[in-house]
Design a protein around this nucleic acid. Structure first.
Length: 312
DNA sequence: TATGCGTGGTT
DNA sequence: TAACCAAGCAT
């Protein structure tokens, strides 16, 4: 593969990521900051276990911590082990998901629990490859669970870490739209050698991005590495690059799906077609959205035109 | 690689 | 007040 413009644009100076470079001071500074400032989140407590970590990671995919907290607590109380969730219909997972958004995650978490019960004796696997094979688990989540729950050494590259590295190392206000090979390479180069430290580094860099090095209004005065931050040293230049397009929502199928599913979720039994028809005026889009929910396995059609959450 | 996929708080 | 943003994944 030839070097692309993007690769060149995201190249990191040799003095920052040269192979074998020692980043001990950086690791120490960030991890010490984490020890002093980390939030006390339930999935970080020892009693959460690997299942707690996995549940939290699913819920935190694109959903803020504050909204996850109450649902997480109820979820773990009801389904303390993967097999407990696997024993229930997937519709119960969708219902318990509530308004966290992206309800396909609930379906995938249920599927992951079933796979864990069947293939792994009911225990969340510790191997990255086995985690990655579970529904709803991608590169980030596999690395996060292996790192946080099992103390393994992985590059954990989420949106927070990408932003921290973009600023502190690459000198840009924001990372590229899509994760690049250069970002992955940099993340790997910065992982501490020792596994236990690597796991703390992963959590610490994420926390720094979540609390201090935020997307809007970063609080550089509070940042432990502001003095070494490439973006700060460059004078905090504004982001240059393709517009980071924000997703529209109003009037989309997603909005219609959300309304349809809300009715199903809040209803104990089957919902007649007529009740669903009331959530959206435009019949073609309404039917398309409902079809999509059915084909996604989020909704089950019944004889006679009624619908319900899946019973399987 | 670009797109679809929810929801609600913040600026 | 729209736009932005939030621990991504699957296709």
């Amino acid at each position: 593969m030839t070097a692309t413009t993007e690769d060149a644009a995201n190249a990191v100076p040799d003095h920052d990521n040269g192979p074998g470079r020692d980043h001990t001071d950086l690791h120490t500074t960030v991890v010490d900051w984490f020890d002093a400032h980390a939030r006390d989140l339930p999935w970080r407590r020892p009693e959460a276990g690997a299942w707690g970590v996995m549940v939290s990671e699913f819920m935190l995919q694109q959903t803020p911590v504050a909204r996850v907290l109450p649902v997480y607590e109820q979820w773990l109380a009801r389904w303390p082990r993967p097999a407990d969730l696997a024993a229930e219909p997937s519709g119960e997972a969708v219902r318990a998901w509530g308004r966290l958004g992206y309800p396909r995650r609930a379906l995938r978490l249920h599927g992951a629990a079933a796979a864990i019960a069947e293939r792994h004796g009911g225990d969340v696997p510790g191997e990255h490859a086995q985690l990655l094979a579970l529904p709803g688990v991608g590169e980030y989540t596999a690395a996060a669970v292996a790192s946080f729950a099992y103390g393994q050494r992985h590059a954990v590259l989420d949106t927070n870490v990408r932003r921290v590295f973009a600023r502190a190392v690459t000198g840009r206000q924001y990372p590229p739209n899509a994760t690049t090979a250069a970002e992955r390479k940099l993340a790997r180069a910065l992982v501490p050698q020792e596994a236990a430290l690597a796991a703390r580094w992963a959590a610490a860099t994420m926390e720094l991005g979540a609390l201090v090095c935020t997307a809007r209004g970063p609080e550089c005065e509070r940042c432990p590495i502001a003095a070494q931050c490439a973006w700060q040293l460059a004078g905090a230049p504004e982001y240059e690059g393709p517009p980071r397009r924000t997703q529209s929502y109003a009037g989309t199928d997603r909005q219609v799906r959300g309304r349809l599913l809300a009715v199903l979720r809040d209803s104990a039994g089957p919902v007649p077609q007529a009740a669903l028809d009331r959530v959206w005026h435009e019949p073609v889009q309404r039917a398309r959205a409902l079809d999509g929910l059915v084909s996604d396995g989020l909704v089950e059609p019944l004889e006679g035109g009624a619908y319900r959450l899946p019973q399987t």
